[in-house]
Nucleic acid binder design. Structure first.
Lengths: 318, 318
DNA sequence: ATTAATTACGTAATTAGTTACGTAAATGTA
DNA sequence: TACATTTACGTAACTAATTACGTAATTAAT
């Protein structure tokens, strides 16, 4: 068993915690017996809060000890049968079931104090014998998880690892089909293809590159999963339009859009651009977000050939 | 909930461990989903050992991961249904059910490697952000519990606390009844009362004290719970016999016998004794143990008035 | 004053483990 | 070689929690 933890390591931390907690509960049973306390370990949290408070409702107890209310409900029923607790409907609120210790329960609460002292000492001594205090360690770990869950942390690591396998390369004729398909994917799911789309997607060389524009392609594990174009504009205010940005749905969430955007902006700068322009639609929230992250700001009052455009943005380069 | 742990403190360590482990399992479910792995968290230990070993029997897996074998049996059945594992009777041993990964399972094992890496990194990063590394802390704690269980540790604390409430006082006439009853208790449970017993238990003054002997009484919370006598001997080899040592069954396990013994030996020394003698029976193992701890050694060849005596011991005082 | 939403809490079903027990195969022993 | 013991493992019952859901009481909103 220890071999398993040594091999699997940290990824088995959940199993390890469960086993340790089971071991503790097992010993707790024997400890209650030694002190002649007719209490099951699982009753302890309920018993404890009621010995500190005169009276509490089911949900109030559940919240305090971090159990679900049905769990408390069941525990209370068991303890009522053993005449440790008694129930009483709340006078002002007919839904509430107020629970408190019976005289027998109070006597037990008194009797158990020595046991608490001994257990506390024993655990403290054990913790103090170790270099890494487990009680503090758990406290810290819970605090860190409250700030950012383990799921969230793993997601971040995944992204970090995957982005290393992403490569941004210049357009080549062999990327013609992916260039078209990746763009069609998002356009047809949210809008419909327009005439202007068809032209530039079918003939990127003629409509984009030959006019002085650029296209970059994102490869993930050597396969094209994202594209982005820089289109030369005939406009006194803007040099280029950032357009035809697309990332395949399977490759989303890896930060590929950001890489494409940064790469195309760099290209624009190397071409001497001073100002970039783009058109989009506010339903594409992640895209708008990305454009903001890249430094684009909203502008108004430009004409557009696209029906789907309801937001226009610009980026001033230095 | 945190309030509960803050109040109850360390004695709720079992609950806290359980909750933390539940939180980890919850996140694990979401993590498997994110990687499109059709694995339940509870399958992980079985899956892991089988991806490290070609083939293993049910109990071999159970031992390695620290589960009961029915648990593994159930998990394996579920995974066989999902065609991740396959079973095969052992050729040499008809009882054994050898389990291994199917091709699908092997493919999953290969696919899951990235996930392992990410999870490991994420956990490591979290642990390194804390002052007390929880993984090491658990390792240490388990090590300490292996050496001495929490039950054992609590028992020791109990003894330490209780021994403070034990007082050894000299005999007084009011302890006549307890002196008799405490001795009758053990004699009648293991043997039967003999004439010599009756005499000295009914008339301790005449048969023990007036002949130059001593009696001490142990009080626990002011109540007499143990006695021990020092009886003057008419023997060239021995000054006194240690006898009539008795501790009430309710007060056993608090180390009262040791206190009584030490006290009576001290008394013997103050009376100038050079050598003590005692008689006992080997069925009384804790007693024999205690006599050894006090320094007594086995001797042979003395006559005794007691039927129940089958071991004789002496202690040389310096 | 109704109606809608929320809260309290019980019951039922589910989950992930356990212990208890029975059977068959293998192993040890007289 | 026969019989007892041990081992492997499945089934059943139990345990301690959960989620899902329904009902009644209270509170908020129109």
């Amino acid at each position: 068993m220890n071999k398993f933890f040594d091999n699997a390591g940290i990824i088995a931390i959940g199993s390890r915690l469960r086993m340790l907690s089971e071991k503790m509960v097992e010993d707790a049973t024997k400890i209650y017996e030694m002190y002649n306390m007719d209490l099951k370990p699982k009753w302890f949290p309920v018993f404890y809060v009621l010995s500190q408070n005169n009276e509490k409702s089911i949900t109030a107890i559940a919240n305090e000890i971090g159990h679900s209310h049905p769990s408390v409900s069941k525990i209370v029923r068991e303890m009522v049968k053993e005449q440790i607790l008694c129930e009483k409907k709340d006078k002002n609120d007919g839904r509430k079931n107020n629970i408190k210790l019976t005289p027998k329960g109070k006597q037990m609460a008194n009797q158990i104090k020595d046991q608490y002292l001994d257990v506390q000492k024993a655990v403290e001594v054990t913790l103090n014998q170790s270099r890494y205090n487990m009680w503090y360690a758990i406290e810290e770990f819970e605090f860190l998880l409250d700030q950012k869950s383990m799921f969230h942390r793993v997601k971040e690591e995944k992204k970090l690892r995957e982005i290393k396998e992403v490569e941004i390369v210049p357009y080549e004729p062999k990327y013609g089909i992916p260039f078209k398909n990746l763009n069609e994917e998002w356009i047809t799911t949210y809008f419909k293809m327009e005439e202007t789309d068809r032209k530039s997607l079918n003939n990127p060389k003629e409509y984009i590159l030959d006019k002085g524009g650029e296209i970059v392609v994102a490869l993930y594990k050597k396969k094209p999963v994202g594209v982005c174009a820089l289109i030369k504009m005939n406009d006194p205010h803007y040099d280029f339009e950032l357009a035809k940005m697309a990332v395949s749905s399977e490759a989303k969430g890896k930060g590929i859009g950001l890489l494409l955007g940064k790469s195309i902006i760099k290209k624009a700068q190397s071409l001497g651009a001073k100002k970039l322009y783009l058109e989009s639609n506010t339903v594409l929230k992640p895209a708008i977000n990305l454009y903001h992250k890249l430094g684009f700001n909203k502008v108004v009052g430009h004409s557009t050939p696209y029906e789907r455009c309801n937001i226009q943005m610009e980026l001033v380069l230095d």
